[in-house]
């Protein structure tokens, strides 16, 4: 398999949600995702990091077409999937998978684990009863829920959070998709099981050579498996770079703030205040003109009132900031 093949290409993607539609008033838009470009190669993974409301979940779900893009293009394997009809959309559903944040809610409580895993196979009319059984048991083995016979007959509420999330992972992988969107897959789990879930995800991603977009607000976990880190703020990608490059050499003021806000377990923390920007992310109905971080940025200049372009500062390190845009 050619590792340099581009799987996903996003061009100038916008997702605006219309709100407060009155008969005569101008419609208002929440600009959840506002002008995003990137490429993802086969087998690679991206960590999409941002605070809540930054549009990272919207971006992820738009990529797998759970939301309609407002404008821009999404290419998957060279095919434009921005405006698929429902028949082709069903094909696309097979090619992509979603792992959600809340395993308790992500599983239909009235199905057994077996039935939960069988659903995608039934929907896409795959195999005979026997073939499906084999595939389901294999999927349970893959996520290490053994003995598979025991687990397959259980209902979700009989499982622990970690086990549920394994079922969610098994379900999203059972169609062998080429792209997985993992939306905060461990944030609702106990600290002690987070690592094993992330390890499992990483292992399966390598095993099946999938591309993965890992959406998280927790920078501390990204080091574990992603090739890339994308930092998202208020609907924009403000910085993207390879993982180590970004962690060691953050350029955008927001990235720096984010990195400095993350506590590492260190008893010295209590003796000092963290240097973090004040305030909170802007309202996406009426975002600041220009750079959206400008109102909180200690380096803000006059030019920041116009929107900066994303530029490649170093090889494979893009920043959307006037500081580097001379």
């Amino acid at each position: 398999m050619n590792n340099n093949e581009v799987l996903l290409k996003i061009e100038n993607l916008r997702v605006w949600f219309e709100i407060r539609k009155r008969m005569l008033s101008q419609p208002l838009y929440v600009r959840a995702v506002d002008g995003i470009n990137f490429e993802l190669k086969k087998g690679e993974s991206i960590s999409l990091v941002g605070e809540s409301g930054s549009g990272k979940t919207t971006l992820g779900k738009t990529i797998i077409r759970l939301y309609e893009p407002t404008s821009g293009k999404i290419y998957f394997d060279g095919i434009d999937i921005t405006n698929l009809n429902s028949k082709d959309l069903k094909w696309y559903r097979k090619e992509t998978g979603l792992i959600q944040q809340d395993p308790f809610g992500a599983l239909p409580s009235h199905f057994t684990v077996y039935r939960i895993l069988e659903e995608p196979l039934l929907i896409h009319k795959i195999g005979t009863v026997e073939e499906r059984r084999k595939r389901i048991f294999k999927a349970l083995e893959d996520v290490k829920l053994t003995p598979v016979e025991d687990f397959s007959s259980k209902y979700p509420h009989m499982l622990s959070g970690g086990q549920m999330q394994r079922v969610v992972i098994a379900r999203s992988l059972i169609m062998r998709p080429k792209l997985i969107i993992a939306d905060e897959p461990v944030s609702m789990l106990d600290a002690s099981v987070r690592i094993e879930i992330l390890d499992l995800l990483k292992e399966l991603q390598d095993k099946f050579h999938m591309s993965l977009i890992y959406i998280t607000h927790d920078l501390a976990t990204v080091r574990m498996f992603s090739n890339w880190i994308f930092i998202m703020y208020a609907g924009n990608l403000v910085e993207r770079a390879l993982t180590n490059e970004l962690l060691n050499n953050p350029l955008h003021p927001y990235t720096k703030a984010l990195l400095s806000a993350i506590p590492d377990p260190d008893p010295e923390n209590r003796k000092k205040l963290r240097e973090v920007p004040p305030g909170e992310p802007p309202n996406l109905i009426n975002p600041p003109p220009g750079c959206r971080f400008a109102p909180r940025c200690q380096y803000a200049m006059e030019i920041c009132n116009t929107e900066p372009q994303e530029i490649e500062v170093q090889s494979k390190h893009w920043v959307k900031c006037w500081l580097f845009n001379k």
Partner: peptide
């Protein structure tokens, strides 16, 4: 609005399947 409905959409369940197999039993 529950996540499992969204998940069903994501793996391709049709509207009627969601109505009869996912929402009504729930």
């Amino acid at each position: 609005t529950l996540p499992y409905i969204e998940a069903a959409k994501a793996y391709g369940a049709s509207n009627w399947r969601i109505v009869f197999l996912y929402i009504i039993p729930k």
